[in-house]
């Protein structure tokens, strides 16, 4: 977990218990699949509080944790680590479609 604390900005994330999808805690204390709705902690103290809130709301999710992010000028959030980038935005290659008979 420590390496996720290396940046200054953080969001809280987890996987949803029922379907395993990646979710983020929003300002209203709800879990959302949208990173752009995630509650943003802007300093270390806020991050601690965010993590506590996430753990308090953990009934329908698995093992909440903090994700270090960056914020662009237009407010777009992006995780710092490659792992979290992939968690937030999916596979980095095109998976084969169910009805496809060739990979393309």
């Amino acid at each position: 977990m420590a390496k996720n604390l290396s940046g200054e900005l953080h969001v809280a994330s987890a996987n949803r218990l029922g379907d395993g999808l990646v979710v983020f805690l929003d300002d209203a204390g709800q879990w959302t699949t949208r990173l752009d709705r995630a509650a943003l902690a802007r300093d270390e103290r806020a991050a601690e509080i965010l993590l506590q809130r996430a753990q308090a709301e953990a009934f329908g999710v698995v093992d909440p944790f903090l994700v270090a992010v960056t914020e662009s000028e237009d407010g777009t959030l992006e995780p710092l680590s490659l792992r979290e980038k992939i968690r937030a935005s999916g596979l980095t290659f095109a998976a084969i479609a169910g009805e496809a008979v060739r990979y393309a």
């Binding site: 084969i96 479609a97 009805e99 496809a100 990979y103």
Partner: peptide
């Protein structure tokens, strides 16, 4: 392992084929 494919993956249609 066709060129450029994720090794070991098969679609449902391919499994049926």
């Amino acid at each position: 392992k066709p060129a450029g494919a994720p090794p070991g993956d098969a679609s449902a249609a391919q499994m049926e084929g």
